[in-house]
Design a protein around this nucleic acid. Structure first.
Length: 256
DNA sequence: ATGGCTCTCGCGGAGAGA
C-alpha cells in the first residue's frame, strides 16, 4: 500500500501536474494540503477518471485539505474541533484498515505575530484531538506540519534554532503530538539522511539545496512494522514543460 | 541588509506562504 502527502499550493494551479504524478506514482492514498479551493468547486470527475475517490474539506483562497483514495474511504472527521476560525486544516477517514488523517498546520508568520501563539495552540488542540479519539492500531497522520523537527531537517542545521519553524516551543508541541503514539516514518526508515520537502521559490533555493523537511508522514507503532520504504519525490518539485511546481515535494511511504 | 517567487482575488496591487 502506497501512501503519500503533498502540499500542492493551489489545486487549480497544480491540477495537470497532480494528474501526471498520480498516473506515474500510483499512490493508494494521498493527503493533499493547500487546495485554496472551496469544497463545492472540487473537480471530483477529474480524479474519478484516474480511479480516485476524494473526501474534501476546502475553503476559498486559503488552506484546504483532501484525501484521495483508490478504494472508497469512510469519512471520520472534518476540521479540528475548537479550531474552526483557523480555517480548513484537517480531514480524517478510514481507508481499508488504516485510519488516515491529513493536516495543514498553521504557519505562524513570525515570532512576534499573533498567529504564532495561535499556531502553538492549534498544535495543542491537534494533540488533544488525536489522544482523546479512540484509535485503530493502524493510524497515519500526514501533512504539512510547518515545524522543522530537528536541526538535521533544516539546510541551515542548528544555526536556525530559535527562528520560526525551529523554536523550542514549536518542537515541544510537535514532540507532545508524537507522544500520543506517532512515529516519523521517513526518519524511522532513514535515521541519518538529510532530506528536504520544501524549498523557497526565491533565489534558486531548490538548486542550492536550501530546504526544510516539514512535510511528514507519522504512523503508529503497528504501521512501522509494515514500513517498506519512505522517500521524498524531488522530481515533482521541478517544473515540467509549462507546468509549474509547488514549493513542496510529495512524500511517499510504501507499506507491506 | 534586503529581497529574490508563486498563488489567490479580481483587474490593481496586496496578502500569504515558510
Amino acid at each position: 500500500m502506497r501512501i503519500a502527502t503533498w502540499n500542492i499550493n493551489g489545486l487549480k494551479a497544480r491540477l495537470e501536474l497532480l494528474k501526471l504524478w498520480l498516473e506515474e506514482r500510483q499512490p493508494d492514498v494521498v493527503g493533499l494540503q493547500e487546495l485554496k479551493t472551496p469544497t463545492a468547486e472540487f473537480p471530483h470527475e477529474v480524479f474519478k477518471a484516474l480511479g480516485y475517490h476524494a473526501l474534501v474539506h476546502g475553503q476559498k483562497s486559503w488552506n484546504g485539505v483532501a484525501i484521495l483514495s483508490k478504494e472508497p474511504a469512510t469519512h471520520l472527521q472534518t476540521g479540528l474541533p475548537g479550531e474552526d476560525e483557523m480555517g480548513s486544516r484537517l480531514i480524517t477517514a478510514m481507508v481499508g484498515d488504516l485510519e488516515f488523517s491529513t493536516v495543514y498546520c498553521p504557519n505562524g508568520k513570525t515570532l512576534e505575530h499573533e498567529d504564532y501563539g495561535r499556531k502553538l495552540k492549534w498544535f495543542e488542540s491537534l494533540k488533544a484531538h488525536w489522544q482523546e479519539k479512540a484509535r485503530g492500531d493502524h493510524a497515519v497522520m500526514c501533512g504539512d506540519f510547518n515545524i522543522v523537527p530537528d536541526p538535521k531537517d533544516s539546510w541551515q542545521g542548528n544555526t536556525a534554532d530559535g527562528e520560526i519553524f525551529h523554536t523550542e516551543a514549536e518542537r515541544t508541541r510537535y514532540q507532545a503530538l508524537l507522544g500520543t503514539g506517532l512515529i516519523d516514518l521517513f526518519r524511522h526508515h532513514a535515521p541519518d539522511d538529510q532530506a528536504f520537502s520544501w524549498w523557497d521559490y526565491r533565489g534558486g533555493a531548490f538548486h542550492r539545496r536550501h530546504g526544510l523537511r516539514i512535510d511528514l508522514i507519522l504512523g503508529t507503532s503497528p504501521v512501522t512494522t509494515r514500513l517498506a520504504s519512505a522517500s521524498i519525490d524531488r522530481e515533482y518539485r521541478k517544473k515540467r514543460g509549462e507546468l509549474t511546481a509547488s514549493d513542496h515535494a510529495p512524500v511517499i511511504v510504501d507499506l507491506k
